[in-house]
Design a protein around this nucleic acid. Structure first.
Lengths: 313, 313
DNA sequence: CTTACTTACGCGAATCGTAAGGATC
DNA sequence: GATCCTTACGATTCGCGTAAGTAAG
């Protein structure tokens, strides 16, 4: 049994049971992969793939089990290499954060500034995407850490850690009727105007929806955006009332806009950090997490990585 | 990086950093191992072993980390092979239980009888040893399941599962003064006679010691044995009063002996099952555990394997 | 007829064992 | 001097790529 064989195996499964594509991805020949997989099947004494004539059409039951373990082993092989890098160059290295616009724009800058001054030699990169995309980046090893609010649960490969709770503000132009309100803001007040808020599956959008639904209101959402800057721009233009993450309102920069606390109208959202359970994290990666969410010490993160496993086996 | 290299690495560490012995154990040449380890060190870019001139004297810090991960990978490689066996021969296979005399003699027979009738094709074997020995058998992969009462905690590689609580009986010849006691038995009553009980580190012996200590009594233990049969034999001979596990008294067989419940005198002990956290257990292994301790369903055991990890990393 | 996998074959590389060399205890 | 590891070298094996063959859609 060789690691290379496992690599072939996993890649074939990843490419939808297409041996040729796997060969291309791995920069090798297709017959080589075929042969090695057969050799492995012979050695283990089980078929891993079901072949219909000369076509791979499915994975056998033992094959699924074998793939699962093989992936783990390859992950650990990668971890071995990272250990090497870590000790060769304690300070240097790279760290890739996958996150959403809102986090990157409003929550992360402070953390990143602190991180860069502490680890000037670490190449930090930020990849943006939808919550689903960023989860998959981490699952696929393209990023080390995912940071998002929505929809990054339910990946058994990832350990999720709560960072902080937050809620919404309503933003309106400064001469807007809602600014003169003497009583507390209600959902009905908000629903009376055209609304501008986040796209579905982004930045706690579903908490907004459910609040209106629970109140029996059908708000008129005239525009949805992925990022807060777009929302604010159109609010400035008078297109409607914005509902944004409270942390995304910057009094110094957002001239002409007024934020009204709406924390009592919506259920609060929790921003989470996600890391691959079985990935080897460099020392500075733990520090990054601690800088972002001080309660997440290295010990706590490592504890969470090991426990809370429920990947239905 | 190749699995073979990791195997060499781990074996060298296991043989006390002696490359030659590792070579012998693995039936290969010593220069081969040396070379492969060096190649791996080159590939990873770190020294794994500290060499004093031409002698391996220690493991480096990254080396410890690398060894830990390598062991895991090799374990999983072995699991892959087991998966093959499992599916080739769903009913057949082997299962090795490492346990102490008391368990093998009094607790296990019922379980084993049921198991054998259910899986007649499984080659079941039982290895006996001290709690420490049986723990190490499982850690080293020589046995699949450890069953014991004492001293098999504190192995981070093992997951421990409580099976049942039990306590002690006093056994005496049937004409012994203690049989005529009209009031409840006390520790002082027992300590008044020469005692025969288990060897240190066996079958809850330390619970017996602490009970006497707490009562300020210094019992006269005239004989210690590993197994209950020896204790009963010498009690029959009138050598003293026996303290044994309650489950080890068999009224039908133990003619001439009387058991007196002593559950109120000693803290109860818990018999536990231990399995390697990262080993692949065959389906029938889970069934064996369930037969022995019905509350330990396959789901519960698997849950315990994954969580409750605290291997101080 | 195209796509996709298998078989066959030859090259180059890697692994392993033997033998000799040097360091440490 | 004994033990233990490294270096050197040759033989075998192994993995990989090219080319041809065959089955499925």
């Amino acid at each position: 049994m060789k690691l290379q064989q496992l690599r072939y195996l996993v890649e074939v499964a990843k490419q939808g049971l297409n041996v040729s594509e796997a060969a291309e991805k791995l920069h090798t020949s297709q017959p080589g992969i075929s042969k090695q997989i057969r050799l492995l099947e012979d050695e283990l004494g089980v078929q891993i793939f079901i072949r219909n004539g000369k076509r791979v059409v499915d994975v056998t039951a033992p094959g699924r089990e074998i793939l699962r373990i093989s992936e783990r082993m390859l992950m650990q092989a990668q971890n071995l290499k990272r250990i090497g890098e870590e000790f060769v160059n304690v300070e240097g290295g790279s760290l890739t954060i996958a996150t959403t616009h809102t986090q990157a724009r409003y929550a992360l800058p402070k953390t990143i500034k602190a991180f860069l001054s502490r680890y000037p030699k670490v190449r930090l990169s930020i990849k943006q995407g939808s919550p689903t995309q960023i989860s998959e980046m981490v699952v696929d090893g393209e990023a080390d850490i995912a940071i998002a609010t929505e929809g990054i649960d339910h990946y058994p490969e990832l350990a999720m850690l709560d960072c902080y709770d937050w809620n919404r503000d309503i933003v309106v132009p400064q001469d807007h009727p809602l600014t003169g309100l003497t009583r507390p803001l209600t959902l009905a007040d908000v629903a009376a105007y055209p609304l501008i808020t986040y796209d579905f599956a982004f930045t706690g959008r579903n908490k907004i929806n459910s609040a209106f639904e629970a109140a029996g209101l059908a708000p008129n959402v005239v525009l949805t955006a992925i990022d807060t800057d777009v929302i604010k721009t159109y609010v400035s233009l008078g297109l409607g009332v914005g509902i944004i993450a409270a942390m995304a309102f910057e009094p110094d920069r957002d001239h002409g806009l007024v934020a009204i606390d709406a924390g009592h109208l919506f259920e609060s959202s929790t921003t989470r950090i996600g890391v691959r359970r079985d990935a080897y994290l460099r020392g500075y990666a733990f520090d990054f997490i601690s800088l972002f969410a001080p309660q997440l010490s290295r010990e706590i993160v490592q504890g969470a990585l090991m426990c809370e496993i429920d990947d239905g086996e």
